[in-house]
Computed example of a mutant assay.
Amino acid sequence: MSAHGISTVYFFKLDDTGKIIKGTDGLSDTGIYEADGNNEGFTSINITGLEVAGTNQWANDKIKRVTHGKAEPKVALTALDLDHDILMKMKGYSKDSKGGFIKGKKKPHIAMLVVSTGFDNETKVYEGLANTEIIEEASNHSTDNNNESDSNTTLSADVLNPLDPTVFADPNDPEHQEPYKIWFSDETGFDLAAILKEVGGGYTAVDGGSSQSIAATTTTTTANS
């Protein structure tokens, strides 16, 4: 279905087995980071390469077969603002004791869940990527004059297959796994908590702290389904 806007975006940092990382080494105490703070959020998110055009196979002067390659999704993101400490963690930069950050040798596994709204303004659309590597290719600036010259954060993400073989597996063929999955809140059985757990490497909401907004979102969105 068609959709509009960006409602919110959730991020998770995962270990090499696809399990959520919490605390100092993760993106928050509970492991989840919602990019929706003061001045914070995304102005555009474009996911490409979800499917590959087929290649015609000819025989007897006719198209007899169409072969399809593997999907190779990529994500382009532009943020109005992001917490710089979280951004450095998502990019895999190491922090020193003097306020500095430097790119580490290994990119972390970052899962993300992008939420938009259907044109009925009731249905929520959730697009999940359970394993990405995020890069910020350039840092561009220009001078202020009688107008302020803003430089927004521009990121890209290479999308890999989920690390856990049970994540994003085809229910009709469990051995078939894809790097991308989509959900609609008006579908029977829709469960946001289950989505966050699948995308986020086992994330579960707990009482208190930063998880309250997630719990509230779960209740509200389920009520709209």
Rank of each mutant, 00 (worst) to 15 (best):
G128C: 05
G128Y: 03
L129S: 04
L129N: 06
L129C: 12
L129G: 12
L129I: 11
A130T: 05
N131R: 09
N131V: 03
N131L: 08
T132K: 05
E133W: 13
E133V: 13
I134K: 05
I134T: 13
E136T: 10
E137N: 14
E137Y: 09
A138M: 10
N140V: 09
N140L: 13
N140P: 00
H141F: 11
S142H: 02
S142I: 00
T143D: 08
D144G: 10
N145I: 03
N146R: 09
N146A: 09
N146F: 07
N147G: 06
N147E: 15
S149Y: 05
D150M: 05
D150L: 06
D150S: 10
D150G: 01
N152K: 10
T153Y: 06
T154M: 02
S156A: 14
A157M: 11
A157H: 08
A157W: 05
D158P: 00
D158E: 12
D158A: 15
V159W: 03
L160V: 02
L160R: 02
N161F: 15
L163Y: 06
L163Q: 06
L163V: 10
L163S: 08
F168P: 00
F168R: 00
A169Q: 06
A169F: 10
A169W: 08
D170W: 09
D170T: 12
D173F: 08
D173A: 11
P174Y: 07
P174D: 05
E175M: 06
Q177H: 03
E178V: 14
E178K: 09
E178Q: 13
E178G: 10
Y180C: 07
Y180H: 15
I182G: 08
I182H: 07
W183T: 07
W183L: 04
W183Y: 13
F184T: 08
F184M: 13
S185I: 02
D186V: 09
D186M: 13
D186E: 15
E187D: 15
E187G: 07
E187F: 11
T188D: 15
T188R: 14
D191R: 15
L192I: 10
A193P: 02
A194T: 15
I195F: 04
L196D: 02
K197R: 13
K197M: 07
E198R: 05
E198V: 01
V199N: 03
V199Y: 02
G200L: 04
G200R: 08
G200Y: 06
G201M: 00
G201K: 01
G201C: 01
G202N: 03
G202C: 07
Y203G: 00
Y203N: 00
A205Q: 05
A205E: 10
A205D: 07
V206E: 11
V206M: 01
V206Q: 06
D207P: 00
